[in-house]
Amino acid sequence: MRYNVLAMDDNFTLYKTMLVIRRFEERLLSEFSTGKIVGTTHAYIGQEADAAGIFSVVDTEDVVFSNHRCHGHFLAYGGEAYQLAAELMGKASGLVGGRGGSQHIHWRNFYSNGIQGGIVPIAAGMALAEKERNTGKIVLVFIGDGTLGEGSLYESMNIAALWKLPILFVLEDNHYAQTTPVEKAVAGSMSARFTAFGIPVWERETSDVLEVRSLAMEAAASARSGTGPACLILHTHRFSAHSKGDDPRSPEELARIHKIDPLTIHGLRLATEEFPRAASEVAEIVNNAFDRASLDPFPELCSEY
């Protein structure tokens, strides 16, 4: 089994990864009120266990195609907070020079795009390329409960299974597609969608990073084994609105899901003195990222494509 070069196989590192995502997204949301960031964003707060657990077992040489809610995936993948912050501020020093912003980033083997469903056949094509080139890499594609409404997902599942492609579908079900509850959008079973194509599924309702990690280890190993695609379904909760102001959930519901906090759950495994250490290390990463990025220049426009 290959591990991430970040060696996220100890409890402190896993906690710290989740805390980086949490504090990064909190700072990001606060920067909208300062006017340093405009447009929109989709915070990963509440779902941190998914990214931290998955990227603690996935090789950093593997290929990732993420979606509109990509910051947590990127940071757990090993991406630099400063470059992401600069991208979100539209700075020339950003990951893609300010052209892509929150939803459209690329770094090493990490890609994201903001179109639901459309990224899935692309990820399948990438998996075909890795297979044909015998690189041993797998491709992870991140989808959500909302993506289950998109037709190109099923086209891709079918072909990926037919051609035994090394792809891991990661379905993060956070129970809402923007404002639409899953009960109004998804008929039948999520997992049966995949098993109908012969794709094995690892599924859990959990916000425990160690549980995610162990499931991801098995699912990724399956995708890497040459037998074809695998699927990891994680039922989770996002604490924030879909983007900024679009949250129809009741205070009671929000209070209930805030009790299922991956930081609290995994925090039980840390020693008391590790909390201030994590807090200060993370504060330095996040503050440095945003403070440094805010000083950077904006990009020039080149009118040629």
């Binding site: 290929v63 195609f65 890609y111 459309g118 899935v120 056949p121 692309i122 990820a123 399948a124 094509g125 990438m126 998996a127 075909l128 390329a129 890795e130 044909e132 080139r133 037709g151 190109s152 086209e155 891709s156 079918n158 072909i159 037919l162 051609w163």
Partner: peptide, 25 residues
């Protein structure tokens, strides 16, 4: 030479992914 199901979006999407990862589809 890969014959596909009737899945035009996937054909072009996959070609796009292949192109991003070193093939010429």
């Amino acid at each position: 030479v890969l014959t596909t199901p009737i899945s035009e979006a996937a054909i072009v999407g996959m070609a796009s992914g292949m192109a991003l990862r070193g093939l010429i589809p």
